[in-house]
Design a protein around this nucleic acid. Structure first.
Lengths: 202, 202
DNA sequence: AGCCTAAACGGACTTTACCCCGTTTCGTAT
DNA sequence: ATACGAAACGGGGTAAAGTCCGTTTAGGCT
């Protein structure tokens, strides 16, 4: 197999031991979060429990936040699958407004379910988890545009992203894993989102 | 003077040396920020340069973020004065919608001017700078209510707060102090805010 | 003036994220 | 199979936040 067929193929595939260790570390991290709570997951502790060196942990994930980002990533990808190719109204097929409403509620639920880990994936200095234009921002932007012309589309998309994700990432503190409270908060913010969007597009 | 006249007077006034040290530390912190950039202001460095013990620094401010919060506080108070008793449309006297628009633009400008320090006043674990319901949130809530009845008032207030402050606190990364770029970003987000509010209340 | 106590102080200590670099291993080309 | 270079590994080292507790001091009381 000639590698040169791949136009800009990554310089090299990831080594087998690297893959194995990454997965082992993620599995171990999940265990530790479940047992100790996210605050008490330390890099040393993780390395020791995984039977690996500290250097390896950092090489794999770059930073503490990097681990939680990686952990979120799997669920995040699944979430996006529902948005991209799941059933309406979250997936394609419904009216854009309906999709926007559904997206908001689904996203709020997602963030509530991943509250601790999403917050832990913050990184001092970086804008916020992933890259600049988050998937949420892009999706909101696309739906807004489908709904109709609007001034300041890009700015609005940024602000709606913040309106949707910001509360759970920074304003609403939810120390405990209280299922009832979570449902309540989700409904509370979901209703507000619906009002916001309905008024925005009417 | 009998202290018992004061109903719930604080148990005791702050000691003179404490006041002196607090102010000295804030002054020193400002110098260090100007000289080194906020990232390179460390607690050890600050204590040493101020000629005080590290314990004193922590006693005064609680945490690294606490220093930046204290630093912001002075400017924040001045900002609030303009909102509470300054000339319209930011201050009272204008229509609520006008005030909301003016508040957004003013707040964006304020946050751009204090971008680095506002971000540094984050604290892992705490909701966000000050207490739970920020002044911004309360003000937005009040104006919305004056504009007219709206469902999910409290939730909307939270989300609009995030829409306003979130981008500058976490989504928009602005590494450099480029005046031109700042003005541009401010206008960009200000216009979006205006669109958002106008559509929300029409 | 002298006493007394709460508050403030200082700096050594602990914890934790993150860096560095010599050593080991993987995977490929011969 | 062997050799070799790149990648991965390990764990000691560093820096910085935050804690602890013995010592000092401000300032009210007698």
């Amino acid at each position: 197999m000639d590698r040169s067929f791949v136009p800009f193929g990554k310089p090299r595939a990831e080594r087998a031991d690297a893959v194995r260790n990454r997965e082992h570390l993620l599995r171990t991290a999940r265990e530790m979060i479940a047992e100790l709570g996210i605050e008490r997951v330390t890099m040393d502790g993780l390395a020791e429990r995984a039977g690996l060196g500290k250097g390896t942990v950092f090489r794999r994930f770059g930073s503490r936040a990097g681990i939680f980002r990686a952990l979120l990533d799997a669920d995040e990808r699944r979430f996006q699958q529902h948005v991209i190719s799941g059933p309406p109204p979250l997936g394609p097929g419904a009216e854009p407004v309906e999709r926007l409403l559904a997206y908001g509620r689904a996203r709020i639920t997602f963030l509530l379910d991943h509250h601790a880990i999403a917050r832990a994936s913050f990184e001092r200095g970086r804008p916020v988890p992933a890259g600049d234009p988050s998937v949420t921002q892009l999706h909101i932007r696309m739906l807004l545009r489908q709904i109709g012309p609007i001034p300041s589309l890009d700015g609005i998309a940024i602000q709606l992203t913040a309106a949707l994700e910001g509360p759970l990432l920074l304003y609403v503190s939810r120390p405990e894993t209280d299922v009832g409270l979570a449902a309540e908060t989700g409904a509370f913010l979901g209703d507000a989102w619906q009002t916001l969007i309905e008024r925005l597009v009417r």
